[in-house]
Design a protein around this nucleic acid. Structure first.
Lengths: 344, 344
DNA sequence: TTTACTTTTGCAATCGTTTGCAGGTATTAA
DNA sequence: TTAATACCTGCAAACGATTGCAAAAGTAAA
């Protein structure tokens, strides 16, 4: 196979020292305009590409980040792909490459994700494993190395995490309803062991307090079924059957919202006239074009991009304040009057 | 950040030359057992990991392969993930790493997939783009560099392609039916512009010839609808309505088979007693646990593994004979008697 | 003791870059 | 004409490994 052009070859042809070539190619102000032009031309003619191994060796970085996944199958999910697209975008912006560092296969020590940093194969890790799945690793691994966890939570000041701003999502949702005149706002939530549910509810309750609305425990419905849609539906029936039912429902996931719609429809009610409804999620909600409801929209692309940019900033020794970062969520107003007949 | 241990540090502690350390770590027979043991111990204590950039520089390889995708979204498909798992497995086996080299983002020249080879960032490329999508690239790109195309076809002796063995799939399917006493074997195919359909049919026809069965044009039904399932259903009605209908149907995709099942069921017929049916595909078919039919099974994992192994062999200058390789398909016999009532 | 091995080690060059330092040339001011 | 400056360029050492060659050390035979 052909050996690639090197800086020395260019130097020989241009009749200068290779250090001059290096400087010219890096657009250093130290080299004369004429010389620079000549060198650039030769480089182009010979299709020169700098050897990134040599470059990395001296610069002590590979300009590659490792994408750490629990297993490749996670990529089937649209959410992960969208996050990955964001990561890719940041990588392209900063000239980085992406290495797949999945934990699914039994690999030898030197190709184990964290060790890839020690081998200088990658400069840092972007961890897209679930926050719960990293418990198996000694903290030292994560602390010593540049690692940013996506969708992670931590109390350790040395670990970096980037997350959707769930608290703010709860605030925005509650505020929206209050501005529309509601004061009995129900919440459909999933299992409270998940931090993102807790945070959303925390945001919601903070708004109630600010508006002097008493928090009514009956308006907080927990979904506890395998089938989240069913769970949302049943919870909604319970809400509608209350002596004083809510005038608005804040469903904290896409599936719960779907269930709520089903229940509301079955009871012959209209959204948003009879009862107001808000969902929460990513693009899944965009897919149901035939029934767009108001939604707190998360942006997985932005999550990926932000996390990756943070990691690259850490790698480049930029000043970082804080260790927990939040990607803003958006309110997507799509409340439409739904004709009952559509749903019969 | 901590600087990693180097070979020189170990040498200093062990009071030997670094060349001895290098040899010891690479388990060279040139170094004394005692010395080797001592060096190994020190390396372990210091958590030594060889700098892969330095190593790659002198060995002229990065031990990383690039996975070339048209866009990240392709990974949503189970097929791609399974192929990727196979690739990962081969990479782990041979100590290689996987770099994502997608074409989706507008990247600067030096991070463009093919140029990553010139930069010594990757040693070769595994191309999972569709065979049609590479037309935009000058042939030279692909010829000069080690590239293996998955699911690709080519007449260029310098390009390597690995594919499911579609011809053999056609042969196996037809043989199975003939052994079961069928002689009127219909085929449901998709658009013939796709090579894999052509190949499967070629295999099927070769079996007919061997068995002195005349090929009946009426038994070859082309699906030409967007909705492949519907297309399979309609084709099947046409077949069942023939003056002399077939006794067996060979559906060349999963969707066509689904359509055929629907049609057969609607006509009140039983599989395999009234009419025999065979599908073709990957794991999708395994998912329909409630209706397992006999199937020509493709193994995407094996496809990925084989392709990756081929690429690595090329990189290691192994003798390669031929440039087109086929991954065998399997016959999965699952023909079950289906009770009519189940489907009413 | 000398010779002829074998085994083990060290030296130094190499891979392709980057970069601090020294030195060279041209330009300008004194 | 000399000194001071600005502007370029080259030398050589690094980065961290590998490896051919030479040489040292150890062993066995003559």
């Amino acid at each position: 196979m052909k050996i690639n052009t090197t800086i020395s070859e260019i130097a020989k042809i241009a009749k200068v020292n290779k250090s001059t070539v290096s400087r010219a190619l890096n657009n250093s102000p130290l080299v004369n305009g004429e010389t620079k032009k000549k060198i650039m031309e030769i480089a182009r003619d010979l299709q020169y590409f700098p050897n990134s191994l040599a470059r990395g060796l001296i610069n002590r970085k590979s300009e590659t980040i490792g994408i750490m996944l629990l297993e490749l199958s996670s990529l089937k999910k649209t959410l992960f792909i969208d996050i990955l697209k964001g990561i890719e975008s940041a990588c392209v912006k900063y000239g980085y490459n992406m290495l797949i560092a999945s934990l699914s296969e039994q690999r030898e020590e030197r190709t184990f994700p964290f060790n890839l940093i020690k081998c200088n194969r990658i400069d840092g890790i972007l961890n897209i494993c679930s926050p719960y799945s990293l418990n198996g690793f000694s903290n030292s691994c994560i602390v010593d190395h540049p690692v940013v966890s996506i969708n992670g939570i931590t109390k350790d000041k040395n670990k970096y995490c980037v997350n959707f701003d769930n608290y703010e999502g709860g605030v925005i949702g509650a505020n929206y309803f209050i501005k529309r005149g509601h004061s009995r706002i129900a919440v459909l939530t999933g299992n409270q062991m998940f931090n993102f549910f807790k945070e959303r509810i925390r945001g919601y309750r903070s708004v109630l307090i600010k508006n002097n609305i008493l928090f009514d425990k009956n308006l907080l419905q927990f979904g506890c079924f395998e089938d989240e849609i069913k769970s949302g539906e049943l919870s909604t029936y319970r809400l509608l059957d209350l002596p004083v039912p809510p005038t608005a429902i804040f469903a904290l996931t896409y599936e719960l919202a779907m269930g709520a719609i089903k229940a509301i429809k079955r009871r012959g009610l209209e959204i948003p006239n009879d009862i107001d409804l808000m969902g929460y999620g990513c693009n899944e909600l965009n897919n149901i074009q035939h029934f767009p409801i108001t939604t707190i929209l998360q942006n997985p692309f932005a999550l990926g991009f932000t996390s990756c940019e943070l990691l690259i900033n850490i790698l480049n020794r930029k000043e970082i304040t804080g260790n927990l970062f939040y990607v803003p969520v958006e309110l997507m107003v799509k409340a439409m009057r739904i004709k009952k007949k559509v749903y019969v």
